[in-house]
């Protein structure tokens, strides 16, 4: 009886020490929360997406192109895919939008399907409209073209 009490006391003590050791001073915590837990700060105003209808240059050949128009209220679910109203093969005549490329009709074994491949159905998984916002972190991506140019010995 007594021994058991002792053991559990020691265990509890150990536990509380380990918790104390784990706690870090407040200013050392990196958090996205800029207000105390119990305060709901007013979110910043939503920015408008770029709706310029001007296609953006892709940064690398496999990049899904960004969407150059707004997509507010465009429904993509089991019932309907609004994007395909303009981007389907048969729609490009009236919409003058680029057709989804042939990769969107391929399954994972590279078979060509008659219709949109299920893995490409939810367009906004890969394609996103853009904001004219300042970068949160600096981007040090270097285009492959520049890399090739930099490593090539100067010819003249």
């Amino acid at each position: 009886m007594n021994a058991r009490k002792l053991i559990s006391m020691v265990a509890l003590l150990g536990l509380s020490f380990s918790i104390m050791a784990a706690s870090v001073p407040e200013d050392k915590i990196d958090t996205l929360r800029l207000a105390p837990l119990n305060v709901e700060p007013t979110p910043p105003a939503m920015q408008q997406v770029i709706n310029s209808d001007v296609k953006q240059v892709r940064n690398y050949p496999m990049q899904p192109p960004v969407i150059p128009h707004k997509i507010d209220g465009y429904q993509i679910d089991l019932k309907v895919n609004k994007c395909m109203q303009c981007h389907a093969r048969t729609s490009t005549g009236h919409s003058q939008a680029p057709m989804v490329s042939v990769t969107h009709y391929m399954d994972r074994d590279n078979n060509f399907l008659a219709d949109l491949s299920p893995r490409r159905y939810f367009c906004t998984q890969c394609h996103a409209p853009q904001l004219d916002a300042k970068l949160l972190v600096e981007n040090d991506f270097v285009d492959i073209d520049h890399l090739i140019k930099a490593t090539k010995p100067a010819k003249h």
Binding site: Q75, K79, V80, K82
Partner: peptide
């Protein structure tokens, strides 16, 4: 179509 409500199966 679907300007004010969700669309049905199209």
């Amino acid at each position: 179509k679907g300007i004010a409500h969700q669309l049905p199966d199209m």
